[in-house]
Write a protein that binds this DNA or RNA. Structure first.
Length: 277
DNA sequence: AAACAGGCCTAAA
DNA sequence: TTTAGGCCTGTT
């Protein structure tokens, strides 16, 4: 293992543009964790990294090319403008303020798909546990600044496994879905890169054909894995928020091309709001 | 102890 | 096309 030669530090953004706690903690990703030193460590696109805030600025340290992180954190987009592009009443305005600094990550498509299959009827700590076991059992090991990490195993790798191999993940009935999705992706019967380029209606249609993927998981995949920003995943939290805080006839698609960002603000606010409000 | 957790599948109206 | 019940596992 080489690695260590090209490690460098990159300034990512201001803390206002990128709030790392909110971004990593708002439920869109499962592989970033805060350590005692206040920095967040994780792996994306095969690169282990450390992200931290220093005063008003956010830095990242890794061996990845700079462009990778600018893309991953979606730093080319003006989030002020994106947030201003939708309107949905007072509750959404509050959620917007509360979630300021969240960015919709451009995650690896397969990782996102697999993670959100695991997420169904599950809670975040357990989702993270299952994902980490998946990576440590089947992902290539990586070393970074004296610690060990693992890549997210490819669909091709998982496709070779049998159901019993996934037993140690303790993912329950989701194991069958993971396997079947991995095989569909590996065999090419579903092409994730192609779906990223396709319009999201037909992309969703293709995703729904995969066993274990319903509307909610498909929408999460579209938003977090394929970056179709108009996707609006509706889970129990969102459903509740829509019911309690929006007009009965409110149509999320009226939020427009950045509806997914609105969804994330609402989700984050609804989940962490009551204890903070 | 029973219910629930960021759903989905299948069977049955 | 909508609805009920079952599904693994873990926590409260």
């Amino acid at each position: 293992m080489k690695m260590s030669e090209n490690i460098k530090t990159l300034k990512l953004a201001t803390a206002a543009e990128l709030d790392i706690r909110k971004t990593f903690d708002c439920g869109q990703c499962f592989r970033w964790n805060e350590s005692d030193d206040g920095a967040w460590r994780g792996v994306a696109f095969g690169y282990p990294a450390k992200v931290w805030r220093e005063g008003d600025e956010v830095f990242i340290r890794s061996a990845a090319p700079d462009d990778l992180w600018l893309d991953y954190f979606d730093l080319g987009r003006d989030y002020e403008a994106a947030s201003a592009s939708f309107r949905g009443g007072d509750f959404l305005d509050e959620a917007k303020r509360f979630g300021a600094g969240i960015r919709i990550l451009r995650q690896e498509p397969w990782e996102a798909l697999c993670s959100f299959i695991i997420s169904q009827c599950n809670n975040i700590p357990r989702i993270k546990g299952i994902v980490e076991r998946l990576c440590s059992y089947f992902g290539e090991p990586l070393s970074f600044e004296g610690e060990q990490y693992h890549v997210f195993p490819s669909a091709a790798r998982i496709a070779q496994l049998e159901l019993k191999d996934l037993q140690p993940l303790r993912s329950g009935y989701r194991a069958e879905y993971i396997l079947s999705a991995a095989r569909d992706v590996a065999s090419g019967s579903i092409d994730l890169d192609q779906l990223a380029a396709a319009d999201w209606i037909s992309a969703e249609k293709a995703l729904l054909a995969v066993k274990g993927i319903g509307k909610k998981v498909a929408d999460c995949m579209l938003l977090f894995g394929l970056h179709h920003m108009e996707a609006f995943p509706i889970d129990v939290w969102i459903r509740r928020a829509l019911k309690e805080h929006f007009p009965p006839d409110f149509d999320p698609s009226s939020l427009g091309e950045n509806a997914g960002l609105a969804q994330q603000y609402i989700f984050y606010y609804a989940r962490s709001g009551p204890s903070v409000r």
